[in-house]
Design a protein around this nucleic acid. Structure first.
Length: 292
DNA sequence: GCCACCGGTGGC
DNA sequence: GCCACCGGTGGC
C-alpha cells in the first residue's frame, strides 16, 4: 500500500523546520510555536491502566504490539491506538493506515493539508461524501498533536508515552536510536549525534527531532493547567491529524488495513470537544457515522 | 542494578 | 504561563 503520495508536496507556506539554534530547551520548537492552536493535528489516546503493558505506540501500522515482556513498561501507560487526520475540505476524519503514513502527513500538514483523497491510498474509494471515520467519544482519550514534526530519521523511532491521568504532564516524547538508545531531549540528541558522527554522515540532523508532545483535549487530564492551552482553535483550510488510542490492545491487535473498527462512538463529553473536532459541522453534512 | 516514569523547575 | 529538560526513584 503506501505507494505514491505525491499529494504531499507543494504549497510553500510559512514555517518549515527551523534550524536548531539554541541549546537548551526550545531548541527548535520555535518553528511550531503557534501551531499549538491545535489547528493541525489531533491524537486520541485511551488510558489503559489495567494492562500497563506496553509503553508506546508501536512502529508500524498501528498495531499495538502485545505487551512487552520486560521492563519496557512500568506503570499504567496509554497506548496510541490509531491515527487519523482531518480533511481540510470536508472536515471529516480519516483514519490513517499506519503510523509512518501519519507521520508523513504530519510532517507537512500545514503546507500540504490532508484531504480525503489522500486516504485513497489505503481506502480506495473514499471521498468527502463518506461519513467521518471517527468522531470523538468518551471512551477514548483525544489529544492534539503538533504539526510539522519531521519524520524520524531512518532507523530511528519517535515514541510518545502518555502519562497517566492526573500527572503533571500529558506525555513524554522519546527517540530511540537504531541501536536502541533512548534520548529524551534535544540536548541528548545533540550530544548523542556528536558522539556518533556516523549518523550525521547519514544525514541525521537535529532538525529531524522534535520533542513536542501532543496535548490532551480533556482539560483536566493533566493535573495543572492545560485548560487554556488550546483555546483559539481554528482550522480553516488546514487539516488535522489525530491518533486513536484503544482500550484493549487485544481487541484490535492487528486490524490489517481497516482501522476503523477500533473507533467507538459515543458522544458524551461535548464540552471537551474543541471546535476542530466537531468538524462535521459544515452545512448540510450529517454527523459523522460510527466507524465500527 | 537498570530503566521507565514522574515530578519539579528554570528559562523563555 | 508554558514547556523543555533532567534528577530521582520505584518497579521489575
Amino acid at each position: 500500500m503506501e505507494s505514491n503520495l505525491e499529494n504531499f508536496v507543494i504549497s510553500p507556506t510559512e514555517n518549515s523546520v527551523s534550524p536548531p539554534s539554541r541549546k537548551r530547551q526550545k531548541t527548535f520548537d520555535k518553528d511550531g510555536d503557534q501551531c499549538d492552536d491545535a489547528s493541525h493535528q489531533i491524537v486520541i489516546y485511551k488510558n489503559d491502566k489495567s494492562d500497563r503493558g506496553q509503553d508506546e505506540q508501536s512502529g508500524s501500522h498501528f498495531s499495538l504490539e502485545p505487551l512487552k515482556p520486560s521492563k519496557t513498561s512500568k506503570r499504567a501507560s496509554v497506548k496510541i491506538g490509531a491515527f487519523a487526520a482531518q480533511c481540510a475540505k470536508c472536515q471529516k476524519w480519516r483514519l490513517i493506515s499506519t503510523k509512518e503514513k501519519y507521520e508523513e502527513i504530519r510532517e507537512r500538514i500545514r503546507e500540504d493539508p490532508f484531504v480525503c483523497e489522500k486516504a485513497r491510498e489505503w481506502k480506495p474509494d473514499v471521498t468527502c461524501n463518506d461519513p467521518s471515520d471517527v468522531s470523538q467519544d468518551g471512551s477514548k482519550l483525544w489529544a492534539i498533536d503538533k504539526p510539522d514534526i519531521a519524520q524520524a530519521p531512518q532507523g530511528w523511532e519517535r515514541l510518545i508515552k502518555i502519562r497517566g491521568e492526573g500527572s503533571t504532564k500529558f506525555a513524554d516524547v522519546y527517540y530511540r536510536s537504531p541501536t536502541g538508545v533512548q534520548l529524551r531531549s534535544t540536548n541528548e540528541v545533540e550530544k548523542y549525534l556528536a558522539e556518533h558522527p556516523e549518523y550525521i554522515a547519514q544525514g541525521v540532523e537535529l532538525s529531524h527531532f522534535s520533542f513536542k508532545s501532543p496535548a490532551p483535549l480533556k482539560k483536566d487530564y493533566v493535573r495543572k493547567r492545560s485548560q487554556t492551552s488550546q483555546s483559539g482553535v481554528t482550522h480553516t483550510g488546514s487539516s488535522n491529524l489525530l491518533q486513536l488510542e484503544e482500550v484493549q490492545p487485544i481487541s484490535w491487535a492487528a486490524p490489517p488495513e481497516n482501522n476503523k473498527q477500533m473507533v467507538i462512538y459515543n458522544e458524551d463529553q461535548p464540552e471537551v470537544v474543541p471546535s476542530e473536532l466537531r468538524e462535521p459541522t459544515r452545512p448540510g453534512s450529517p454527523p459523522p457515522a460510527p466507524a465500527v
